[in-house]
Amino acid sequence: MKLPNFDYACPTSLAEAIDLLARHDGDAKPISGGQSLMPMLAFRLAAPSLLVDLRLVPGLDRITVDESGVELGARVRWRDVEADERLARACPLLAAAIPHIAHYQIRNRGTIGGSLAHADPAAELPAVALACAAEIVIEGPDGRRVVAAQDFFLGPLTTALEPAELIVAVRFPPWPAARRHGFQEFSRRRGDFALAGVALFFDEESGLIGNAHVAGFGIGDVPQRLAGAEAELNGRAPTLETFAAAARAAAAEVAPQTDIHAEADYRRALLGTLTERTLAQAAGLGHAA
């Protein structure tokens, strides 16, 4: 369908962009890559009176890698992440997720900030941000605030963002060199939204797993930290038996819904299988499909 009618503004500063959003009191939407918002407009699921294009706002496209971790500006595109060789070491879980995100053409325009703000329950970045305990840096009429990924995703397509607030960056904590990670998802066709997926990492000390972070996505309203699976992992040896127990815990602690794409039981079983495979992938134990 053709897009609904709206006005368009292309501010040249962050303050001006926030001011435009504030003056329209929830009836204006920011746009950058547009890879989620444009389909929403085409389906008339969104019909704002004003689009505020962020393409000329300076400073939002930076990638910073230092001892405090990785900071990605909101307008950093997937292709920028793919092309930045530092990120394979500085945030390998993010790098591992990128090939699963949509398609080549979409990755050429889609942005970090857009994916977080759109908050699709089956999207990869929200799950990676959650697994990594990332922080989302937000700016609005009342200044800057930082929200933990855990507190940012409130429901399907719903976040902690106020109408006049913008994501300016996402920060990932430092990544120890020895940390193990894995990312897997299952979709019926390449590039489709996942029916279920898992993003995880753990550290190893004296042959035992510690600090396990396991996030599932596509299995509920928001990406979910799988505390039961993490409890099965922490303090145990990274063996296939441990991973099978964690997978059972993961499947037991999610409550997926039946929809046109998959039944609830199928998604639950799929999440268990993916958890097991992703853990094996992280540990380098083969049998990772």
Partner: peptide, 27 residues
């Protein structure tokens, strides 16, 4: 499709393949 699924409208913008139905002309 006009919503970014089919790829038929792909053009190169500044050298990159993008779906031209998912970009405003003003952009």
């Amino acid at each position: 499709c006009e919503h970014g699924v089919c790829g038929a409208c792909t053009v190169l913008v500044d050298g990159l393949a993008v779906r031209s139905c998912l970009m405003l002309a003003v952009q």
